[in-house]
């Protein structure tokens, strides 16, 4: 049952990722991104990381995609006005295919080594919320503080970036 669910969620994720890339309309891309995030969240549930699955929905699907849609609406872009494939695009596609080939080769070479790290049928450590608290407030206490400051700085930066300074207009 879990295997079937894995393949469903994986197909959902990858299919909507392809839709994000090939869709000429930015709004459709954002909605496909939303579906892909739901698939990723399902994968997290299958990996016993229930908290991260919920956070993925809340933060990404709730906040980030909503912000994207809001900005698309604000900038009012209609259609994609896609041009036919140019030479740089073909080169870019080739580089991407080469990257995929490198990743696939290294993955295939490592399969023998990966099988030894087999998980038992026991439930994963990510399932227990207490483990998060233990780690976040002991080992990772400093990174938590740093990330808190990062959020504060990002908030201040966004305010400065999006505010119109009347006196600065003539300097520009």
């Amino acid at each position: 049952m879990a295997d079937i669910l894995f393949y469903i969620f994986a197909a959902m994720t990858i299919g909507s990722a392809v839709a994000v890339v090939i869709n000429p309309n930015a709004v459709n891309s954002a909605l496909a991104f939303l579906v892909g995030l739901l698939g990723v969240s399902g994968l997290f549930v299958l990996l016993d990381s229930f908290l991260l699955a919920v956070l993925m929905i809340l933060v990404y699907a709730g906040a980030v995609v909503a912000l994207f849609l809001f900005i698309i609406m604000l900038l009012d872009m209609q259609g994609g006005e896609r041009k036919p494939f140019s030479r740089p695009t073909a080169v870019a596609g080739f580089i991407g295919a080469a990257l995929l080939a490198v990743c696939a080769t290294s993955l295939l070479q490592g399969i023998g080594a990966l099988e030894t790290a087999e998980a038992g049928s026991a439930i994963g450590v990510g399932a227990n919320l207490k483990h998060y608290a233990d780690q976040l407030f002991t080992t990772y206490l400093l990174p938590v503080q740093v990330v808190g400051f990062l959020l504060l700085i990002a908030m201040l930066g966004v305010i400065v970036l999006s505010k119109k300074f009347e006196g600065l207009e003539d300097i520009k």
Partner: peptide
């Protein structure tokens, strides 16, 4: 389904994102 399958999904997703960054024209 083991670690390999999940890593395959991650790799494919990463490469799709990379190709998207390279070929798309819209900043968003």
């Amino acid at each position: 389904v083991g670690l390999t399958e999940y890593l395959t999904v991650a790799v494919v997703l990463f490469v799709i994102g990379f190709v998207g960054v390279l070929i798309r024209k819209n900043t968003l």
